[in-house]
Deep mutational scan, measured.
Amino acid sequence: MEQGTVKWFNAEKGFGFIERENGDDVFVHFSAIQGDGFKSLDEGQAVTFDVEEGQRGPQAANVQKA
């Protein structure tokens, strides 16, 4: 798993971006967030995640709040 920081996340649209430790950004969809209840992330929040190849390039999977 990688570690990163939430760059931004739009809860209304259900997606955002995580900044990886290497400085690259990776797309995150709310469906990739682990846990119960409303799935959202806060700007600046530390997270761990896997990276999978999506239809439009790399995207975060198995996102967990650190």
Rank of each mutant, 00 (worst) to 15 (best):
W8F: 08
D42G: 10
N62W: 05
E19P: 01
V26W: 02
E53R: 09
G57M: 04
D25Q: 11
R56M: 09
Q59M: 10
F15Q: 03
E43W: 12
E52S: 09
H29M: 05
E52D: 09
F30T: 05
F9D: 01
I33N: 02
L41D: 02
P58M: 11
G16T: 00
F30R: 11
D25H: 11
V51N: 03
N10I: 05
K13W: 09
F27Y: 07
E43G: 14
F27C: 03
A11D: 09
S31L: 08
Q59P: 01
R56I: 08
D25T: 11
A11H: 14
E19N: 11
G23T: 07
I18P: 00
E12A: 15
T48C: 08
A66L: 15
F27L: 04
V6A: 03
V47Q: 00
F49C: 02
A60R: 00
F15N: 03
R56C: 08
Q3H: 15
Q45T: 11
W8M: 04
Q3W: 13
K7E: 02
L41W: 04
R20E: 02
V6R: 00
K13V: 08
K7Y: 04
S40M: 09
S31D: 04
E52A: 11
D50R: 08
Q64S: 11
D36M: 10
D50I: 13
E43F: 13
A60C: 05
A11M: 10
G23F: 08
E19A: 15
Q34L: 14
H29L: 05
V63N: 00
G16H: 00
N22A: 11
A11K: 15
E19T: 15
F38N: 07
E19G: 13
V28H: 01
A32N: 08
K13G: 05
H29T: 04
I18T: 00
N22D: 11
P58L: 12
Q34W: 10
A32Y: 04
F30Y: 13
V51Q: 04
E21H: 14
W8Y: 08
W8A: 03
E52G: 06
P58Y: 10
F38T: 07
D36K: 12
G57Q: 04
I33P: 01
G14E: 02
K7W: 03
A11F: 10
Q55D: 12
L41G: 03
V63C: 04
W8K: 04
F15Y: 15
W8I: 04
A46S: 12
Q64G: 08
E52C: 08
I18Q: 00
D42C: 12
E12K: 15
F30G: 04
A46K: 15
N62K: 07
A61R: 13
G35N: 06
D24P: 15
D36R: 10
G54A: 08
A11R: 14
F17P: 00
G4E: 01
G4F: 01
S40P: 04
K39I: 08
M1P: 12
A11I: 13
K65Q: 09
V26F: 04
G35H: 08
S31T: 13
W8E: 02
F30Q: 06
Q34T: 12
A46T: 11
D42Y: 14
S31V: 04
R56Y: 15
V6F: 02
E12T: 14
F38Y: 12
T5H: 15
F30L: 06
G16P: 00
G44M: 05
A66S: 14
G44K: 08
D25K: 09
F49Y: 07
N10Y: 07
F17L: 05
T48G: 04
K65L: 12
A11L: 10
K65C: 08
E53D: 11
D24T: 15
N10M: 05
G16L: 01
Q3R: 15
Q3P: 06
S31A: 07
Q45G: 07
G23Y: 09
F30V: 08
I33S: 02
H29C: 05
V26H: 00
E52F: 12
Q59E: 10
V6E: 01
S31M: 07
E53Q: 15
V51G: 02
V63A: 03
I18F: 03
I18V: 04
T5L: 11
S40N: 07
I33T: 02
G54N: 08
N62D: 04
F27R: 03
D24F: 13
E12W: 15
G37C: 08
S40W: 13
S31P: 03
V51K: 04
T48N: 09
G44W: 05
F17V: 08
N62C: 06
I18S: 00
V28S: 01
F9I: 04
E52I: 15
N10G: 04
Q34H: 10
L41S: 03
D24G: 12
K7V: 05
W8G: 02
E53S: 10
L41I: 05
P58D: 05
D24S: 14
F38I: 08
D50T: 13
T48M: 11
G54F: 06
A60V: 03
Q59W: 09
A66T: 13
F30D: 03
K13E: 05
D50K: 10
Q45S: 08
G37F: 07
F15H: 06
A32G: 09
G23C: 06
I18C: 01
F38V: 09
A60E: 00
K7A: 05
Q45A: 09
V63S: 00
A11Q: 13
G14D: 01
I18A: 01
G54H: 09
K65D: 07
V63E: 00
N62E: 03
N62F: 06
Q34F: 10
E52V: 15
T5C: 11
Q64R: 13
E2K: 09
R20D: 05
M1D: 08
Q3A: 12
F9C: 03
F17K: 04
G57R: 06
V6T: 07
A61T: 13
L41R: 02
K13R: 13
E52H: 11
E19Q: 15
I18W: 01
D36N: 12
Q34C: 06
T5G: 04
V28Q: 00
E2H: 15
G35C: 08
P58A: 08
N62G: 05
D25A: 09
V6I: 10
V6S: 02
I18L: 09
A46W: 11
E21N: 13
K13L: 12
G4N: 01
K7T: 04
V63M: 02
K13F: 10
G14W: 02
T5P: 02
Q64W: 11
A66H: 13
G4V: 00
E21W: 12
E19I: 15
K7I: 07
E2F: 15
F30S: 07
F9Q: 01
V47M: 02
K39P: 07
V63D: 01
D24H: 13
A61F: 11
T5S: 09
H29D: 03
R56H: 12
A60K: 00
E2T: 11
Q64I: 11
Q59D: 02
D25Y: 11
F27E: 02
W8T: 03
G44P: 02
V28N: 00
E19C: 11
L41E: 02
I18D: 00
T48D: 05
F15V: 06
K65N: 08
F38S: 07
Q45P: 01
